[in-house]
Design a protein around this nucleic acid. Structure first.
Lengths: 149, 149
DNA sequence: CGCCAATAAATTGTGTACTATTTAATTGTG
DNA sequence: CACAATTAAATAGTACACAATTTATTGGCG
């Protein structure tokens, strides 16, 4: 690639990531409107449906988010009754996040979302798996490089 | 893939996008610290270095952002002297965004950023181009599907 | 036991994103 | 020409995201 092209917006791999992520997130919005949650909140529920309760720390480890982002988001989710927050007995520093009945019930309502979303992507399973693999490699690489910052 | 796996966080293609985008953005931070700008502000400058002035609308078209996001960001960039904002003479509805001398000079300082960033990615050119192509197809698809929302 | 470094959340402050609404300028049509 | 529909930005309000700091708890270790 020629030198000047490296400064073109459309050749920036990270701009493609940035723009695509936001556009894909918009596709989730109508699917999540039913549950009255945002996309990051949906990710929190996915993590909790897989395993709960989780401490804020553990949740942050899975979502790559810190308490500065999670604490206010979790308080909002608690207020609408999807989750509950309580201190761990064994270690009072930890705040555990558990699902309420409403939060557990939401899993059934959300079960169709992955398929509905895939309908909006004009890619076959092989292409998606390939993309997934590339992104995960990139993610791990970025986390290694970014460690000491 | 089995049905229950579709609800696993780590199998969500959009979660990979979301997490990777944020981690890659973090890699830019030290590179942009010199210029004292954020990653979205860097994208604005890339667009303007390619072509300026641009109206808020045109800029939004390139970055996939609307005035609700751009207006406050551009005002911050104006305040630190990177850009200037002024109404178009031909169409007073349009606010044109131009580069100041400082904004133009920043291009030289930023010229090394694409290469420095690529050093942090353990992928060859072919893999990057392939990823770029996949993401652009996904982006266009998402924009079509999301049009009427 | 007492103290101190380490850990977990919460808090503070700044900067995006996005929806919905408002304001102002322009265009198209009768 | 009048005037409604359209267009461009700005504004208002909510919700992330993240760096930096603060507060509370815990686990050593002398």
């Amino acid at each position: 690639m020629m030198a000047e092209d490296k400064m073109k917006l459309e050749n920036q791999i990270c701009f493609s990531l940035y723009a695509t992520t936001r556009e894909m997130t918009k596709l989730y919005r109508p699917l999540l409107a039913d549950l009255d949650i945002t996309y990051p909140q949906y990710l929190v529920l996915l993590a909790l449906w897989d395993s709960s309760p989780l401490s804020v720390k553990e949740l942050g480890g899975r979502l790559y988010l810190d308490s500065g982002t999670l604490t206010p988001m979790l308080k909002r989710m608690e207020k609408v009754g999807l989750i509950e927050r309580y201190r761990s007995r064994e270690d009072e520093r930890k705040v555990l996040i558990g699902l309420t009945k409403e939060g557990r019930d939401a899993e059934q309502k959300a079960a169709c979302i992955p398929d509905l979303l895939l309908e909006n992507i004009d890619m076959n399973e092989e292409q998606i798996l390939q993309l997934q693999h590339t992104l995960q490699r990139m993610l791990e690489g970025a986390r290694e490089k970014g460690e000491g910052l």
